[in-house]
Computed example of a mutant assay.
Amino acid sequence: MTTTELADTPTQAQTVAPEALPAPTTMGAIATTSPAGLMLHLLREHGNLDQFERMMDMQERWERREAEKAFNDALTAFKALNIKIPKRKLVDFETRGGGRTQYKHAELDDVTDLLGPALSAHGLSWSWRPKQENGMITITCVLRHRLGHCEEVSLSSPPDASGGKNAIQAVISTTTYLERHTLKAITGTAESGEDDDGQGAPDGTGAESLATVWCNKVIATKTRAELTQVMKEGRVVFKDAKDRDGYAAFAHAIETHGAALPAEG
């Protein structure tokens, strides 16, 4: 075969028709009006690097907004379930003043067992971030959506050394308490009282003590103004009830929760 014949003979690659080549794979349809779609259009139109970087920034902001909207939609759908957490744990002890405190509350596994599956079904999950500093324990509960948006809430308290607990038990007790309340706070859920067939608790105060009711009111506040209002109302109630032990617990809750609230400008 001559040199001329070799030059005129098409190679195998040359004989493959363009339509026989495999089509490029895609990662899914991209909306032409989305920042990613606009970036692709820009590349086809030979846009410069500065334009491309601005479009990348726009894409990231767009994704964050979409993730936040998805988070809000998921949390709204979760709250529509109106989950109530039953109070199963009975607390009953004698106060230093000779009175008796008795109330019920939910335990941490009650909260997680009820909320976990419902949150997961809506693309939500949570985690806790502990911190110990200056004699205070701070627990931050982070609620995340699968698209990346997250929000968090924090509560702080000193270790609970009541009832003869050792140092480790005191830390664990407070940590569990704060985990329970931060998860309820970030998801907007609450504990419901259990029906006692109208008999009431032995001390005649109902399923919850006065201190528990008002400490929960304190924890539910989101601003210092709300906390101040609860403090004023609570003082009157405890004074009328002559409940010194309950007021001491109430005052401690105000001090602890107030330290965790953001300062108002």
Rank of each mutant, 00 (worst) to 15 (best):
G198C: 04
M56Y: 03
M39Y: 04
G188Q: 00
L178M: 12
M136V: 03
L81V: 11
Y177E: 12
Q51H: 13
E66S: 02
T2L: 08
A67Y: 01
V16P: 03
L49N: 13
A106E: 07
L108K: 04
V111S: 04
L81W: 12
R146P: 01
D8K: 10
E60F: 08
R65V: 05
I168S: 11
F93P: 00
I83W: 09
Y103Q: 01
I172Q: 01
A225G: 07
F93N: 12
K69V: 04
K232M: 14
E5K: 12
G164I: 15
A77E: 13
A118I: 04
A13W: 01
T176E: 06
A220Y: 09
L261C: 07
P202M: 02
K184S: 09
A167C: 11
I83Q: 03
G206Q: 05
T221I: 03
L49D: 15
G200I: 09
L38M: 14
E66V: 05
R180L: 10
L143R: 01
M231E: 15
G206I: 05
E191F: 08
A121K: 09
P130H: 11
E63F: 05
Q229H: 11
R96L: 06
E151Y: 03
V153N: 05
T33L: 11
S173M: 09
Q169N: 11
Q51W: 12
